[in-house]
């Protein structure tokens, strides 16, 4: 998968996993913050994203401190997936 395909797949998975009703992939800015403004996700959503990475991509976050950068935006999550997916 190329970067765009990863981003589009990730958007669809996040919408489904987090029950983001009435949000479609085209409404999500890949560079917008996931937490706070942007999509307005909360701490439980953060845990769901960790589970999503592990279940869908087999990726674990070794150092919790990295989470802040990985979950900054859809783009940063996609970068992490592309870099670490075997």
């Amino acid at each position: 998968m190329n970067e765009n395909e990863v981003i589009e797949k990730l958007k669809a998975q996040i919408i489904e996993q987090l029950n983001l009703e009435e949000i479609t992939p085209d409404k999500i800015d890949s560079n917008a913050p996931l937490f706070g403004d942007g999509l307005g996700l909360d701490s439980i959503d953060a845990l769901e994203l960790i589970v999503l990475l592990e279940r869908q991509y087999g990726l674990k976050i070794a150092d919790p401190k990295d989470g802040k950068d990985i979950f900054k935006s859809i783009q940063s999550m996609a970068d992490f997936i592309i870099k670490n997916k075997k």
Binding site: L18, N19, I44, D45, L47, E48, V51, E54, R55
Partner: peptide
Amino acid sequence: FFPSPSVFV
């Protein structure tokens, strides 16, 4: 084994 945090709460 993938329990969902958002279900668990």
